[in-house]
Design a protein around this nucleic acid. Structure first.
Length: 501
DNA sequence: GCAAACGACACGGGGAATGG
DNA sequence: CCATTCCCCGTGTCGTTTGC
């Protein structure tokens, strides 16, 4: 082995393949900057797991030692998993393995007397007590957990007091707790568990239990690792740990999130930063960056009124105003502290979202309708508005009445005209005038008008036709000109056809 | 009578906390 | 390590009111 050299380290220097010195920044250099072929170190694989690795090749970079590339071979894995790693990726670290650390498969095969890889045995096997107990105890940690995966049935199996089956093995496969068997000795139970989880994982867990596994990252290391991987840790203002999806569980920090309705457990870590790092790794750089930006208040900002108008103009959309709506826009209503867009189509109300400003809500309403429909509705609104603005003046109405030979009937009421009452709309505060005619003991609305004179003209027109139609004692209108099929002559003017109720 | 506006409630999903 | 629970918030839906 060509080992014996320190890997990386501060103040390292390097050289190019042709011997030219490579500029090396002063300060902490990443692991691998100084690695040579044959050196042993640890590399993080694509699943994020640290594993023993050997340096196969080195590719120098003339620009910077930080861009030096190292080809690694993961010990115990097929060479097809060999890969190039740039030293500044943060995926290399110094070898931390304990003495005598061996390939997992070799270890398991040697200890269990099985071919590599070890076949999984789901059921307790007779005669397993004959195994080399010393070897087994080296495979699995002696200190608590004494034998990982094995537990005392007397304590964990509620209600059971069968001493003969005191060592129970339960495993968790894809979220399901599975019973693997009960054994007379903890070693047998541990062997069953080791066989089930596989030699590699058993060795890894044993190493971890011996304190030889991956060491917890400090806050600074987690930040550095995140930076090296191009990840952002997602902060949270509402969370006491300070990081999204990270919560404190006793003396550890747990990273977990919900996906597709299920809680996805990412692990328990010594520091909130490391938990946040694993959350960022799980969701990926893009989502983590977006969430971090949003948490910092840099995410998509609500549009101001001017911005919404500008966006609408840029998209060729018209915001549809509404005078009868307190928000000022059709389809937009205030809901708590937000503005909600709802549209009713085919009898169903469709919610288009909630927004910070009514203008932004109106913009989404227009987007939903599309430019053509939005323009049509906006034009209709404008047309109505124009009609209101161009409503007949009092003099114009009197002139029309005179031309039709009608007389506006005066009254001492609030509007000054008989049959016309003032209507104060609850929405928009706009005052309108309602013309009503008393018929068969009830008031019947003739229409709503912008001016009292228009209402009076309508009332006068209605009165002028009064008596032309006979209403019988049951409230039905007698119509003489009905053909034999029950239809009346469409060319004849008729304003009332149905029974007045 | 119809459609829009509006209030209220139910429901579901996600974040966080907790217990086993 | 996982399931469960609580809480909050967004969304969908229904019923009522109002204006036309």
């Amino acid at each position: 082995m060509m080992g014996g050299r320190m890997m990386g380290g501060a103040g390292s220097s390097s050289s190019t393949g042709d011997g030219r010195p490579v500029p090396v920044p002063v300060g902490t250099m990443p692991v691998g900057t100084n690695a040579a072929v044959g050196d042993r170190l640890e590399a993080r694989d694509t699943r994020g797991k640290w594993a023993e690795a050997r340096v196969l090749e080195v590719r120098e970079n003339t620009e910077s030692a930080l861009l030096r590339e190292i080809k690694v071979h993961y010990s115990g894995f097929n060479s097809r998993f060999d890969e190039w790693i740039t030293v500044n990726e943060g995926r290399l670290r110094n070898w931390r393995g304990g003495r005598g650390r061996r390939r997992a498969e070799e270890l398991a095969a040697a200890l269990l007397g099985m071919p590599t890889p070890a076949p999984r045995l789901e059921q307790p096997q007779p005669g397993v007590a004959a195994i080399d107990r010393k070897a087994l105890l080296r495979l699995l940690p002696r200190e608590p957990p004494l034998l990982r995966g094995a537990s005392s049935a007397l304590s964990s199996d509620s209600g059971s007091t069968k001493a003969a089956a005191a060592n129970k093995v339960e495993t968790n496969d894809e979220g399901k707790q599975r019973y693997r068997g009960s054994f007379t000795t903890p070693e047998e139970a541990a062997l069953c568990n080791a066989r089930h989880i596989g030699a590699e994982r058993a060795a890894a867990e044993a190493a971890e239990a011996r304190g030889e596994g991956p060491q917890p990252l400090t806050a600074e290391e987690a930040w550095a690792a995140a930076a090296a991987e191009g990840l952002e840790l997602v902060p949270s203002l509402s969370n006491e740990t300070g990081f999204k999806c990270v919560s404190k569980d006793r003396d550890k920090y747990v990273a977990q999130l919900r996906e597709n309705g299920k809680t996805c457990y990412l692990g328990a870590f010594a520091t909130p930063e490391e938990a946040a790092l694993w959350y960022a790794r799980h969701v990926g750089a893009e989502r983590a960056a977006a969430e971090a930006a949003e948490a910092r208040g840099e995410g998509p900002q609500p549009l101001t009124a001017d911005e919404a108008w500008a966006a609408a103009a840029a998209e060729g959309l018209e915001l549809i105003t509404s005078s009868g709506n307190e928000t000022g826009f059709k389809g937009v209503r205030k809901d708590r502290d937000k503005y909600r867009v709802q549209i009713r189509e085919e009898g169903r109300a469709i919610c288009l979202g909630s927004f910070a400003t009514p203008e932004e809500a109106a913009l989404h309403f227009a987007r939903y309708l599309g430019a053509e429909r939005a323009a049509a509705e906006a034009a209709e609104v404008k047309s109505k508005q124009a009609q209101i603005e161009q409503s007949l003046t009092a003099d114009e109405v009197r002139a029309i009445a005179a031309a039709e030979g009608l007389e506006l009937i005066l009254s001492k009421n609030e509007t000054g005209f008989k049959g016309v009452s003032r209507q104060t709309s609850l929405r928009g505060g706009e005052t309108k005038y309602k013309a009503e005619v008393w018929m068969n003991g009830k008031n019947h609305c003739l229409g709503i008008f912008s001016t009292a004179e228009e209402g009076a003209l309508c009332y006068a027109r209605d009165k002028s036709t009064e008596g032309n139609l006979e209403i019988d004692e049951d409230g039905y209108i007698e119509i003489d000109e009905i053909d034999e099929d029950g239809y009346m002559d469409a060319s004849q003017p008729c304003s009332v056809l149905l029974r007045s109720t």
